[in-house]
């Protein structure tokens, strides 16, 4: 019974993923990219930074960057705890 339920859930999940792949826009198409177009049009005026990549990384998605830095800090703490013998 458990196996049957797992197979059903996975099949449903796979069907959803397959449908979403079929609904993807064509590779390289310029349509359905509202977010990117918004960044390109308004990013310079809103953030004052000429580097659009930097304004996305540090302003529009700064919480994502905070998570990246957290990963880096946790990796550092782990390596220091593993490697160092004395404190």
């Amino acid at each position: 019974m458990n196996r049957f339920a797992a197979v059903m859930v996975l099949t449903l999940f796979g069907a959803f993923i397959f449908m979403s792949v079929l609904l993807l826009p064509e590779f390289g198409s310029y349509q359905n990219k509202d977010v990117a177009n918004y960044y390109l049009e308004n990013g310079f005026n809103e953030t004052g930074s000429a580097n659009i990549v930097n304004s996305i990384v540090w302003e529009y998605r700064s919480y994502d960057t905070l998570g990246e830095e957290t990963v880096l800090i946790i990796a550092t703490i782990g390596i220091v705890l593993l490697v160092r013998r004395r404190v």
Binding site: T47, G48, S49, E59, T65, E69, A75
Partner: peptide
Amino acid sequence: WGGGVTFVSNIVGSLVVATA
């Protein structure tokens, strides 16, 4: 000096990455 938040967080973030 006109970068706003990006300028500040660039400096602080570079410090974090470098020291780590």
